[in-house]
């Protein structure tokens, strides 16, 4: 018997858009944001010069860049601390959130026992819990890490739980029919099916981990002396070293962008072959 007349997409790949249009698309992707950036920096610089704004109110872009280079020793050390806390919190939340999600869907009792408290932990603002954590946890770095973990944990937990529960019922029937064990159903069906949800949680969690790390450092205040980037920003504010504050801010944003890019990349790599979210729509 012959295959159906309608050819699959796989056979059509040669008929993809022409090289020229692909290139044009790629160039636009880079050029358009760059033009906006140049415009923004230009207006910023012009404004500061034209109106003679003092650097302790608003430093010009070139002064900020200069400070970034000059203070790189201090700032890079602080950046490293913040990145380490963010990444550690994200990894712990990843492992903890996924494992707890698996546990929750395996047993109704566990879900009833734990999920409400996970919600309570999530909805209480971390700024409000942070002072307590700083008191109870003797090491400031560990306290900051714990805060970041609490915030990051929930989106990964709730998304993965939702994903593990959103399995096609017919596929569940199929697994039952072929006598699959609980373990097999989990590994071959529920976990793969939960992937899109898990990665959505990861993307949210990645951003939140950095935010929470910064918030916790702010809460720690002078207790976190000489530590992360958030502390350096606070310190710069106290000393009216606004150029350095801006430099620190730029580093924080850049870190956030990189985390977002990395989690998006991970999601894309995992889902690109099969999930609608990672596929270009054919027009």
């Amino acid at each position: 018997m012959a295959a159906d007349a309608s050819a699959p997409a796989a056979a059509n790949r040669t008929a993809a858009p022409t090289d020229a249009s692909v290139w044009r698309d790629r160039v636009l992707r880079v050029v358009v944001p760059l033009v906006i950036l140049v415009l923004f920096v230009g207006v910023w610089d012009w404004y500061v010069r034209a109106y003679g704004i003092k650097p302790y109110i608003l430093p010009g872009p070139f002064l900020v860049a200069e400070t970034l280079v000059k203070d790189w020793g201090t700032l890079s050390g602080a950046l490293l601390v913040t990145i380490r806390i963010t990444v550690t919190a994200l990894l712990l939340a990843l492992v903890g959130g996924t494992l707890l999600a698996i546990l929750l869907v395996q047993s109704k009792i566990v879900e009833l026992a734990l999920f409400p408290y996970a919600v309570v932990l999530q909805v209480t603002p971390i700024v409000a819990i942070a002072p307590l954590i700083l008191i109870y946890v003797p090491d400031t770095q560990a306290a900051v890490l714990l805060c970041a973990f609490i915030v990051t944990f929930f989106p990964i937990l709730s998304n993965t739980t939702q994903g593990l529960k959103s399995v096609d019922h017919n596929l569940l029937n199929l697994f039952e029919l072929y006598g699959a064990s609980r373990w097999q159903t989990l590994v071959f069906l529920k976990i793969p099916a939960a992937q899109p949800y898990f990665f959505a949680g990861l993307k949210i969690g990645g951003g939140l981990a950095l935010i929470a790390a910064v918030v916790a450092e702010f809460a720690a205040g002078s207790a976190g002396a000489g530590s992360g980037l958030a502390f350096r920003i606070l310190e710069s504010q106290y000393r009216l070293n606004i150029p350095r504050l801006f430099a620190g801010l730029i580093l924080l944003s850049a870190t956030g962008v990189v985390i977002f890019w990395l989690t998006s990349l991970a999601s894309h790599l995992a889902l690109r072959r099969w999930h609608e979210s990672a596929l270009a729509r054919e027009t």
Binding site: N170, L171, N173, L174, F175, Y178, G179, L189, P192, A193
Partner: peptide, 30 residues
């Protein structure tokens, strides 16, 4: 499952994350 039954659903009911080969392999894999 020991009674040697095959079941075909109204929908194809394939695992979208698995290749055609792996989908067909499933009953034996289990």
């Amino acid at each position: 499952h020991a009674r040697s039954i095959g079941f075909v659903f109204q929908e194809p009911t394939l695992m979208p994350w698995a290749t055609v080969f792996n989908n067909v392999w499933l009953p034996l894999r289990l």
